[in-house]
Every structure is written in C-alpha cells, then in structure tokens.
C-alpha cells in the first residue's frame, strides 16, 4: 500500500509528465487558452492513461517480452517480440481512444461537444504513449502499480494544463512585449513553472 502511494505522489509531482519530460506539449500549448476546455481535456487524458497503461503493461508482460509467451507453450521460451512494441502500443492506444470517444458521445454529449477534435487527437498525445513506453524503465512488479502510475501521470498532466490555462487567462490583461505575445510568453511561463516543480525533486520516496 505504501508503495502504491509513493508511486502515485511521485508520478504527479516529482516526475510530472509536462514539466519533467515535456510529454503532451502540443495539446498542452494548443488547448490551454481557457480553463474549462483544458479541464475537460485533462480529465479525458487521466481516463485514457488510466486504461492504456495497465493494458499495455499486461501486453508487454505476457506477449512482447523475451520468453513472455511461455504461458502459451513451452516451445516459445526464446521468442522475442519486443521490436513490435511501438506498433502494438499505438494500436492499443488508438483503439482505446476510439472506445472512450464512443462512450463519452453516448453518456456525456455535453463534454463530447466541448472536447470536439481534441478527443480523437489524444491518440497522438505523447503523454499517453510516453506513459506506456516508460513502463519498461520503471519495472513495476504488478498491474496494480502500473494502474496507479497511469492515473498519477494523468493527474499530473491535468494539474499542469489547468494551471497554465489559469495563468494564460490572467496574462491576457498584461502588457507583454509584442513579439512574445501568445506562444512565446507561454513557453517562458511553462519554463518557470517547471523550475518550481523541480523543487519536488529532492524528495525521496
């Protein structure tokens, strides 16, 4: 239990998707003009990460790793499919996003209309694929840890995008030098937020 809480806190603050690894920057910059839409996208990302990370964890453990197919037949113990990782992960992610899209359309049409084009675009959000690709480095021991990691990373991304959206709403009223307006100042503000988040780095969990 303690272990799970550690992974959770770590993935939200210390290894924040946006500030530590720059994952999902494209939609982070494009959708962060208003707090309400960015919150909707953030929730969708939490949801998709929470599903795809454990699914990909199982896929990697029981299909892709060297010797992972032993449960099918003893003769498969030297089959190594790990070079197929990228294509399998992206296939899982694309189909999960499609599923989420259908569910949201059916049960929450308001949210569906708000998110519009950004819902299908989650499939190409690097935060999602990045979360799955990091599984290999993290070496989680069971699927529970992977789920917690996925959810925590999603919440970290949610916090980051809502934070920058709130700041951008305020920046509207400031007198920024003309060439920096819009994109430039958003980059620099994100850099400063990233420096602030580095303050969590020393924490050992």
């Amino acid at each position: 239990m303690e272990n799970l809480i550690n992974i959770f806190i770590k993935s939200i603050f210390i290894e924040n998707m946006v500030f530590a690894y720059f994952f999902g920057m494209c939609s982070y910059l494009a959708v962060s003009k208003k707090v309400s839409t960015s919150a909707g996208l953030g929730i969708a990302v939490i949801f998709v990460l929470g599903i795809t990370v454990p699914v990909n964890y199982l896929l990697e453990k029981y299909v892709l790793n060297e010797g992972a197919l032993v449960w099918l037949s003893e003769s498969f113990d030297n089959v190594d499919l790990s070079f197929l990782r990228f294509i399998m992960f992206i296939a899982i992610i694309a189909s999960m996003v499609q599923l989420v899209e259908m569910v949201v359309e059916k049960f929450a049409p308001v949210l569906y209309n708000q998110l519009g084009i950004f819902l299908p675009l989650i499939a190409v959000n690097c935060a999602i694929l990045g979360g799955s690709l990091f599984l290999q480095q993290k070496a989680f021991i069971n699927v529970g840890e992977a789920t917690v990691y996925g959810l925590g990373s999603g919440i970290g991304w949610f916090l980051a995008i809502v934070g920058i959206a709130a700041i951008r709403e305020k920046i509207e009223y400031s007198n920024v030098p003309a060439p920096l307006r819009g994109l430039g100042i958003t980059f620099i503000v994100t850099g400063l937020m990233g420096l602030a988040f580095m303050g969590f780095m020393g924490i050992k969990l």
Partner: peptide, 11 residues
C-alpha cells in the same frame, strides 16, 4: 535542467 529548454525556445 529541462525547464531551460522551454525558456530557450521562448527566446
């Protein structure tokens, strides 16, 4: 550190 990349692109 990673945040400086953002500031560099901003500049």
């Amino acid at each position: 550190l990673s945040p400086m990349a953002l500031v560099a692109v901003g500049i």
